[in-house]
Computed example of a mutant assay.
Amino acid sequence: MTDRPRQPDPTRRHPRPEFPPQSQEPPGSTGEMRPRPDHGEDSYRGCGRLRERRAIITGGDSGIGRAVALAFAREGADVIFSHLPEEAAEAAETTRLITDAGRRAVAVPCDIREEDACRALTDRAVDEFGGVDILVNNAAYQMAQPDGIEQITTEQFDRVMRTNLYGMFWLSRMCVHHIPAGGSIINTTSVQGYQPSPHLLDYAMTKGAIVTFTQGLAAHLAPRGIRVNAVAPGPVWTPLIPSTMPDTTGFGAKSPLGRPAQPAEMAPAYVFLASADAGYVTAEVVNATGGSPLP
């Protein structure tokens, strides 16, 4: 009897806390994180499920966005992605991963809190690729406030709302004119949308709103053959964490799997939702929370 290859134990597949103490200034840097996040550089294998598709990904320079960009490229898609101007070095690495996969990469420095920036991003995608097949609204901002609502300034609240909601709304409204039947929009929500943490109150508000937006937009666009879905990650080890949370040594330890996800573990959900394999899936939220039960 031959030995069958074993599936990896999900509780031990990636690093578990405690992690080394670390703190960064926003927006954070992948290279300074310990352990270094896994975006699928050595593990993701594509099989042509997104061949010749054209994708926009916001926040594609690092974290989940980089992992999705890498996976999309290895599945055959060309990718244009946004990043903040100060994230140019991170964006260069994502660009390398896409081009190494043999696909076109366009990195666009812009702040999606501004409507004109969203319009310029959409126009650039149409100019470079001739259209848009997939929009991934992934960029997000948070800043933990352990003392709760009294410490959330209007400036912070405005930044969270405009990054997480305004940018998503503007880009979706602009891109629907270019996405053909068979195309899709995928939004990044969060376990926080269902199980809000008091220290992330404003961020959690936006993630709940993204679920509602996803379901409503899906109903509106279904007759056009455009599917709209979302992914709800649990704790994921990205630069957002050490740059916005006061203590990351135990990050993800309370997950039933005992650790945070790596960005590479989120990307397959986006690939599925973008592919023809999900042709009858719309208005859904794929929960990738590490075992935290959600509605």
Rank of each mutant, 00 (worst) to 15 (best):
R6C: 04
D9N: 07
D9C: 00
T11D: 03
H14Y: 14
H14P: 01
E18I: 13
S23N: 14
Q24R: 10
P26E: 12
T30S: 07
M33I: 11
R34A: 13
R34W: 13
P35F: 14
D38S: 13
H39N: 09
S43L: 06
Y44E: 03
G46L: 05
E52S: 15
R53I: 12
R53S: 13
T58D: 04
I64D: 00
I64H: 02
R66Y: 01
A69H: 05
L70N: 07
E75A: 10
V79K: 05
I80M: 12
S82V: 10
H83K: 02
L84Q: 03
P85D: 05
E86F: 08
E87T: 09
A89T: 13
E90T: 02
T94E: 01
D100W: 11
G102T: 13
R103N: 10
R104G: 12
V106G: 07
V108K: 06
E114M: 12
E115V: 14
E115Y: 10
D116E: 13
R119D: 09
A125N: 09
D127H: 15
E128H: 13
E128T: 15
G130Q: 15
G130T: 15
G131T: 14
N138W: 06
A139P: 01
A140N: 04
Q142F: 11
P146Y: 07
D147Y: 06
G148K: 11
G148V: 11
G148P: 05
I149H: 09
E150W: 06
I152H: 05
I152P: 00
R162M: 12
T163D: 02
T163G: 04
T163A: 06
L165M: 15
G167H: 08
F169I: 13
V176A: 04
H178S: 13
P180A: 15
A181N: 10
G182H: 07
G183K: 06
I185E: 00
I186D: 03
N187K: 09
T188L: 08
T189A: 06
Q195S: 09
L200D: 04
L201S: 15
A204L: 09
M205N: 15
M205K: 15
M205L: 15
T206V: 07
A209F: 11
A209I: 14
T212S: 15
Q215T: 08
G216V: 07
A218Q: 02
A218S: 04
P223R: 06
G225I: 02
P233D: 01
P235A: 09
W237Q: 02
T238M: 01
L240S: 02
L240Y: 00
I241D: 00
G250E: 11
G252E: 02
K254H: 05
K254F: 04
E265Q: 05
M266Q: 05
A278S: 08
E284N: 07
V285C: 02
N287C: 12
T289E: 00
G290T: 03
P295A: 03
